[in-house]
């Protein structure tokens, strides 16, 4: 089953970098790619909300790269895009190519889906490890008065 499009780029970024690059470059070599906006790469302010009052604040600057392009292959074409917390414009360009290829259901779509599944699994593993690490820091707050009663 194909996951939501929103999660493709994040999943592919977590998959094996070599395989992602090889597949994207293979697709790109047999298709034409034109930018729909200038690729942007740089620092942007990350907004967050504090958990008490819910007020927005700027957590800090993060590297961000964004690519928007159109991919045209003999079997069809589609617009693709990717935005990632990264300073690697080449990677984000490749993710945008894969995004367009999967959106256009090119013959390589099953291979891309395999990579996405790999990436999702890798992310799930990282998240599980983080949850475990977080779990160890969990504190049970007990009221002293309860025992007194």
């Amino acid at each position: 089953m194909r996951p939501e499009r929103e999660s493709w780029a994040a999943a592919l970024a977590a998959a094996d970098g070599g395989k992602v690059a090889a597949l994207a470059d293979r697709i790109r070599d047999r298709a034409t790619v034109e930018p729909l906006a200038p690729p942007r790469e740089g620092l942007m302010l990350m907004q967050a909300r504090d958990s008490v009052a819910g007020a927005a604040f700027h957590l800090g600057e993060i590297p961000m790269a964004r690519v928007h392009l159109r991919l045209t292959a003999p079997e069809g074409g589609a617009d693709g895009g990717a935005a990632l917390m990264s300073d690697d414009l080449a990677l984000v360009t490749r993710l945008a190519v894969l995004d367009a290829a999967l959106g256009a259901d090119l013959p390589e779509a099953p291979e891309i889906e395999v990579l996405i599944a790999e990436g999702l699994a890798a992310r799930a593993e990282v998240q599980a490890q983080r949850a475990l690490a977080l779990d160890r820091t969990r504190v049970d707050f007990q009221l002293l008065s309860e025992e007194d009663q």
Binding site: A21, D25, P35, P38, P39, V67, L69, L89, A90, T93
Partner: peptide
């Protein structure tokens, strides 16, 4: 060759 080629005006 991995980053997009942009038209000159946008480089």
């Amino acid at each position: 060759m991995s980053v997009l080629d942009l038209p000159r005006l946008w480089r």
